[in-house]
């Protein structure tokens, strides 16, 4: 008599055999004619340009998470608003609970400022600095890369 774990073992064994049979059948049948061009990276027939691992700005990550929230809200509420009418008050209150949970999430997101696109710090030009005698003077670049003495601040 098999124990419960014995049945699990048979399942695992069957899974392995099933997959192995598929792979072996493929190996028996499939043609193998690799060519250098066939093994190129597929990019719609174009030559590949640049690496495939690009760096995305971290700000898109926050936007994607926020989108998930609103997306879920829409997906859940649309059937609730259209076809769950006959289910009566329980369906209504369940929808309300969902809404409350999601709105709390929205508010949290809003409060944290994640709905704002994070901008680099803005440096406002200040008139008094621009016209001051103390500002560093513009100097044309030195003709030779030899060491130049640092311009001392004009007193």
């Amino acid at each position: 008599m098999l124990t419960e774990f014995g049945q699990v073992f048979i399942f695992i064994l069957l899974a392995v055999v099933f997959v192995a049979m598929g792979l072996i059948t493929n190996w028996l049948i499939r043609p193998a004619r690799p060519t250098p061009e066939k093994q190129l990276i597929y990019e719609c027939g174009e030559d590949t340009a640049g690496p495939a691992h690009l760096k995305f700005n971290i700000r898109f990550y926050v936007i994607a998470l926020a989108f998930l929230l609103f997306d879920l809200e829409f997906v859940m509420l649309f059937p609730w608003a259209t076809v769950f009418g006959p289910l009566g008050p329980p369906a209504f209150w369940m929808g309300m609970v969902l809404l409350v949970v999601l709105i709390v999430g929205d508010l949290y997101l809003w409060k944290k400022g994640d709905l704002d696109w994070v901008l680099p710090p803005v440096v406002k030009p200040r008139l008094d600095l621009l016209v001051s005698r103390d500002r560093p003077r513009f100097r044309p670049p030195a003709p030779t890369p030899a060491k130049q003495p640092e311009p001392a601040d004009v007193a």
Partner: peptide, 10 residues
């Protein structure tokens, strides 16, 4: 491009 796409089909 067509040539390459054809070459890349198995």
């Amino acid at each position: 491009r067509i040539k390459r796409l054809y070459e890349q089909m198995p």
